[in-house]
Amino acid sequence: MDENLFYWQAVNIALDRAMEEDPDVFVMGEDVGLYGGTYRATENLMAKYGELRVRDTPISENSFTGLGVGAAMTGLRPLIEIMTLNFALLALDSIVNLAAKIPFMSGGQFPVPLTIRMPGGVAKQLGAQHSQRLEHTLMNVPGLRIAVPFTPQDAYGQLRQAIRSNDPIIVLEHDLLYFSKGAVDLDAQAPPMHRAIVRRAGTDITCAAYSLMVAEALAAAETLKESGISMEVIDLRSLSPIDWKCLQQSVEKTHHMIIAEEDSGFAGAGAELAATVQERCFYSLDAPVSRVAGMNIPIPFNAALESAAIPHAADIVVAAKKMLLERSQTS
């Protein structure tokens, strides 16, 4: 049964159901309890499950994340909320050196069934310290899996999958998605966590995007349609591992590919996507893969500059037209 839900509600219901289903699931983070979470994602959970299972923490990101690792090693399924991704920098030791390494270094004796949720991305004038993405930082760590749900349906489904999995998994949510709305079927069989989904079919060019950028890509596709250009939009849904097959199939059909990412392009997620797609599909491509990405500067506070530092639908439109035009001129 479909319900029209806010993204934050989908997260909230996912947590509620996961906790109901499995008494080993607990939630921990700053202001997740009494306060209900900065984006309301943990609202009412403390009242329902008590303090042991919904724990407000001191501002000690590295240690409460590491605490989650220790709890996971002893069979619990912690859901750690880091208030925003920017603060996860203080927890990188627990994420990178503990969660991602222990299952391997222990020779498989200690799985770490830990899920870490965090909002990130450029919101509205939060300043350079509160506007980071850092996907690449986490993607470069073997042993971590990264889900980037765009729709409320995925926010629900992928979070449930992450909590059930025995691997450490990062769920990156976008600040600006919490109050987006979408149909959610709570009982639907979710697609596998890392499968990419074609959100809009097209024939001339492929645009791969994730998280909030999928919205920009879809808007761009609508605009391009007016110019007779049919753009396929792929929602990656996951940044580690990546569903290369889906990308490959699309590129073999459209022969053109654009990657849209909010993060700064330099050494970012798009660099990995472009390199691998070119390795895999070089002979299917009619043009070099192009990246539409954030500028390589700290995100400015000034509203106009902030907006100009990250890609929008119009930038994707320009990039798509340029790529197709160049092709038609050379052929």
Binding site: S63, L67, G70, D93, F110
Partner: peptide
Amino acid sequence: FDKERRFMGGYAIVGETFPIAAGIGYSI
């Protein structure tokens, strides 16, 4: 590491034993 003997690991980054121990304590 030895799961059977509850030997929860040697850690090479100085200071990591604290949160791991806190987490196991939380499980207990």
